[in-house]
Amino acid sequence: MLDEPKNQAAGDNLDYVRDLPGFERGHPHYFKDPMIDHLLEIVMLLGGELWTVKDRQAVTEHLLATEGKVTPEMIEQFRPSADMKEKLARDRQTFVKHVYSCLYSDRAKATKTDYFGIVGKGE
């Protein structure tokens, strides 16, 4: 256990919560020049947009190959088979790694890869 937090003494008055870090959502930036934050954010946004296009193209090609035609409704209603889902997930993960691998220095080597790596498995 670490030191008891100071707010333990605040009794029933909870006004102090308004001053705690995190009570207001704020607009944080992390680099000296916030433009770098903006650029990274743009890179994230574009990555997501590019993936949606790749996903749509994969579905379009699949529908054309299997149904011989494609409409926006067919795309929206499309549910990939387990195999195709897995393939899309693999492609997406490769895409994420390929595009963003260079972002970190070696001192923060990757370890566990998902939330359950941290809290333990489900069923």
Partner: peptide
């Protein structure tokens, strides 16, 4: 889904190191 994978790869995987 892209964000979910990005979180796995760029956040969860680096949590301990960071």
């Amino acid at each position: 889904e892209f964000i979910s994978d990005t979180r796995n790869f760029l956040l969860h995987a680096h949590w301990a190191g960071m």
